[in-house]
Amino acid sequence: MTEIELLSWARGPGLQIATVIFVAGVVIRIFEIFMLGRKANLAEAKGGEMSGGLKTMITRTIPDRTTFKRSSVTIVSGYIFHIGLFIVCFLSAPHILFLKDIIGFGWPSLPTPVIDAFAVVTIIAMLATLVNRLTNKVMRYLTNFEDLLTWFITFLPLVTGYLAFHRIGMTAPTLLAVHILSVELLLIIFPFTKLMHAFTLFIARWYNGAISGYRGVAS
């Protein structure tokens, strides 16, 4: 298989396969969650379930003061890598074009050097999260194979993207193909791992906020 064939496969059939698995997996997971159902709360409400849920979906993004103090490394590295990942994923021109081709519309991109800088920062932050995961007592206790796998599979597109942009090590078509393949790998494992939190955290936060909000507490 030549480089361009590999690239074409990655952009064509590979992406199709990954998309099918990703979309099907996510949809099935969402169905699994919602179809389990939840009993209506019969207690007299003190606050709004919907408003509480929606509010928490957003407010939970900000850590509580004491928690921040107690877990600043986890929170800061996590924050940086999530924000960096978001910027690199959704504000770089090639990625926007990718999404535009799928969803039909695009948005302005950030200059490449900015993306590049964010990529470096994100890579560092991800390495920091790994170090933290392996050294922090609690995280090390909780860490299982899946945690390491998802870290690695998330890390791969970042690194391959960085290498592809700077054309390090291999030819550009190969690097691009490897980058796309690494993203496809991410898409494939996504629905079956904790990566699902990217979607389900909004559901989880809504439930959390709804449960509290119903009792008149802003969670």
């Binding site: 199709q16 074009l97 081709d101």
Partner: peptide
């Protein structure tokens, strides 16, 4: 005329 980062096949339909 498809940007290099675009899928070569119709992903939205597949999706």
């Amino acid at each position: 005329y498809k940007a290099l980062s675009m899928p070569t096949e119709d992903i939205s339909k597949t999706a």
